[in-house]
Design a protein around this nucleic acid. Sequence first.
DNA 1: ACGCGTAGGGTAAACGCTTTCTAGAATCGT
DNA 2: ACGATTCTAGAAAGCGTTTACCCTACGCGT
Lengths: 344, 344
Amino acid sequence: MNKRPTIRDVAAMAGVSVATVSRVLSGDYPVANATRTKVQRAVRELDYVVNAHARALSGSTSNVVALVMYDVVTPFFAFIASGVEYQATESDRLCLVCTTHGDPDRELEIVKLMREQHADAVILVGGVNMTDDYRERMYRYAKGLEDAGSRLVLCGRPSLGPDFPAITVEYDNSGGAFSATSHLLSSGHRRIAMLGGPIGNTTFDARLDGYRRALEAFRVPVDPALISHGDMSQETGFRQIQRLLADGVEFTAVFAANDFVAAGAMRALRAAGKRVPDDVSVIGYDDTPFAPELTPALTSVHLPHEELGRTAVKLALQRGEGSARQHVMLGTHIAMRDSVRPLI
Amino acid sequence: MNKRPTIRDVAAMAGVSVATVSRVLSGDYPVANATRTKVQRAVRELDYVVNAHARALSGSTSNVVALVMYDVVTPFFAFIASGVEYQATESDRLCLVCTTHGDPDRELEIVKLMREQHADAVILVGGVNMTDDYRERMYRYAKGLEDAGSRLVLCGRPSLGPDFPAITVEYDNSGGAFSATSHLLSSGHRRIAMLGGPIGNTTFDARLDGYRRALEAFRVPVDPALISHGDMSQETGFRQIQRLLADGVEFTAVFAANDFVAAGAMRALRAAGKRVPDDVSVIGYDDTPFAPELTPALTSVHLPHEELGRTAVKLALQRGEGSARQHVMLGTHIAMRDSVRPLI
DNA sequence: ACGCGTAGGGTAAACGCTTTCTAGAATCGT
DNA sequence: ACGATTCTAGAAAGCGTTTACCCTACGCGT
């Protein structure tokens, strides 16, 4: 096993100083053509690659973007991650991925690790419980990261105010829910069950808010019996429909907090002998890739997941005054399929 | 914006030398309790975090594991990534994620970047085209990474031989296909269409091989008309069924190269008025989370995705003689659901 | 011919940590 | 009580780059 060559070895072989090698490599400083060629030959000869840590230590930018999310497999996160990875690559950055599984301690640990790494940007993804504890925690993160020269980005979660030292990139969560509910309402549905969603979670709360606003706009009273809470899983959707049916709550349509909940709901409806969309219309949220594969193909609120991720990186990397606390909101649209039918 | 404190600042505040601070932080070397306390207080006071690059430069391990895959959203990759991330965290490593989208140039670029980063392990995930060019490329990667002190891991792709300086962690791809096909055969099916799959890709080839072996074991002739190629998408499954039907090829069962292909196939069958499983049985591969949500719930070959990822990291990080070229093969099993029915 | 701006390149000081080497102090065996 | 250990901690030499600073040589306007 050869020891890996350093810049000195390259300099020696090329017969120049290390400074010159460094200059050839970074390509900023003027270097004579003959010299450049000699250096490049030596680099190839020795199969030399720079030491990123030495460079980061000396230079002070690590060229790393960090992504912190709940998990890596839920399509919502996976697609945002995809956008982040894409844009990071585009911007010649590497992409560090960490998961919290909702554990604040782990999150704290990760932010500390990112300070150690001098990440150019730290992107926190997804809904949260907006408590005082959370705000305070974010404030500490922001301070720590700022001192380390990192940008903090809140992605797919609400801004903490214009004075908060972080970039926010969210999508119109409440607006999407408003559209979805309005779609059902204008199809004649009045008894619309709202399913899924951890109570207090900003994502679910926003979706619930859109649901409420749409009902109000149509002057339909909000019936608390139609609103259920739980996590965002298929099981939740399945059980919530079962309970609604068992309790004899009447409804002709279902607005699920996301596509998993919708899938579970459809399964429960089918099990109970209800046909979708003939007896009950169903609409989901997130427009997951499997939505079109369900039977019937699921109508869902489409989110700009990848663009969310890309924008987060783009804004974080853009230097200049005031660039450290921007706020962007992306739109959504409904992907119409076969799970919604007008009420006759 | 305060400048971030260094180890010297901590040393100064605690009234000790930097060496002592370093030792308190790494916790290996014996330090008097009183001293340790003083240092820890100073660390907390200053909100000090070490500089990972300085540490890596001096120490020489970066505590980073790199994951290189086709993309980040396909469940196959996402679940392996999940396992990798989990085990990396477990082992106090950070996880760098890169995607190639099948571009060899990008892959080369990434391996170079990982050499720069001194990643502890570089994990290459997923099937490939096993060409001479590929072997040669891998050999160059292995050499370069070995010099940089990194372990190379081939995950979910075949080993390059016991002498090749890389760890291999694969699953029994061909065996899974054998089981799936046997399941169909022992249910009485004889005309089984094999769908999807890029020709030459090790993953698809292995699945095809299992299909063939099962047919032979049941003394059923292999009919080339039943085997179609394409990518691993829903569209492929959809179109391949359409073509089979249009060509008047007879079949009573479908073995799809993965669950996406299976979903597309089921859609095409439904569109053609064929019922699944009454008229045609369908079996998928990968056991994606949406498999149980399809109608009917899809029977599929379950893969130990997460364990694949975890094992890759575990083996790569374990030091000692011979640990650099191990070969592990994990098993699969069939997740039985409702898309297969015995032929009467 | 002279001064000057600039291209080209070398020297050496950081960057922030780990670790070896060294040494004083405290403890122990006899 | 005294040499031999054992603790504890500091000094300083790297680790591999980048970059500020300095110097030479050359082209050019006047």
